[in-house]
Computed example of a mutant assay.
Amino acid sequence: MKTRVVVLISGSGSNLQALIDAAANADYPAQIVAVISNKSDAYGLVRAQNSGIATAVLDHKAFASREEFDAALRDKIDSYQPDLVVLAGFMRILTADFVNHYLGRMLNIHPSLLPLYPGLHTHRRAIEAGDATHGATVHFVTAELDGGPAVVQAEVPVEQGDTEELLAKRVLAQEHRIYPLAVRWFADGDLVFRDGKAWYKGDVIPASGIKFK
């Protein structure tokens, strides 16, 4: 039985596409059972539909509060009976109640080497800080924004003359490699969340995550 995955998106869904491509392989241990967006014009919905994956839209603007939206989103997600929830460019800050409902079975990918640069504009911040390296982190989601334990990180060099767009493109290419990998680890039972930490094959993962080579 493959691990059932629900993916949440808000935009183009390039990381979703990487997961769809990985799941198309017969030996991949996870299947995407639904894609849910808070924006009806998110291109990721088209990607899902083109692959025969169920889709749903919950417009956050139709709800009176963040709590009401999160409650409705939780109910919609749970209707698909997922084993894992994957955030792939889902541009909503989630309430603690929602996060705790999925604690240990929700992953996110963030375009920085966490704990550096939580939040937005990560590429600009890395360039302005004069960092030699930048990258992306897959982490378990906790109530602290971008603060859950890291699973895997991929690094890219910050090159002379880099713009935000150039750096973002190189980071995104690495995101497409490490996100399907982390989902595979979870589906295989190698990756677990326990005692507030991420564990891989019985060992605690370092605070900066497993380094992807």
Rank of each mutant, 00 (worst) to 15 (best):
M1R: 11
R4A: 13
V5D: 09
V6M: 08
V7H: 10
V7N: 12
L8V: 01
G11N: 13
G13H: 08
S14G: 05
N15D: 09
L16S: 03
D21Y: 00
A23Y: 04
D27K: 01
Y28S: 04
P29N: 10
P29Y: 06
Q31F: 05
Q31C: 13
V33F: 05
V33E: 08
V35S: 10
V35H: 08
I36Q: 02
S37T: 14
S40Y: 01
G44V: 13
G44F: 14
L45H: 02
L45G: 09
A48D: 02
Q49H: 03
N50Y: 01
T55N: 06
A56M: 08
A56L: 09
K61Y: 04
E68W: 02
D70P: 04
A72I: 01
L73T: 05
R74T: 14
R74M: 01
K76T: 11
I77Y: 04
D78P: 00
D78M: 15
Y80Q: 01
Q81V: 13
V86C: 15
L87I: 11
A88D: 10
A88L: 05
A88E: 07
G89C: 11
R92T: 08
I93L: 12
T95D: 11
A96K: 15
A96V: 14
A96P: 12
V99D: 03
V99R: 01
N100H: 15
H101V: 06
G104H: 03
M106C: 10
L114F: 12
P115R: 09
L116T: 11
G119H: 11
T122M: 06
R125D: 02
R125W: 01
A126H: 03
A129Q: 11
D131E: 13
D131I: 08
A132V: 13
G135C: 12
A136V: 15
A136R: 03
V138H: 04
F140V: 08
A143C: 00
G147W: 00
V151H: 07
V156G: 00
V156R: 01
P157Q: 09
P157K: 09
V158H: 11
E159M: 13
E159R: 14
T163W: 10
E164H: 04
E165Q: 15
L166G: 15
L167V: 14
A168S: 15
K169I: 14
R170T: 13
V171M: 12
L172G: 02
L172T: 07
Q174T: 09
I178D: 00
Y179T: 09
L181H: 02
R184N: 00
W185P: 06
F186Y: 15
A187F: 11
G189K: 01
L191F: 10
L191M: 09
L191S: 07
K197Y: 14
Y200P: 04
G202Q: 13
P206L: 07
A207K: 09
S208V: 12
S208F: 11
S208D: 13
G209V: 14
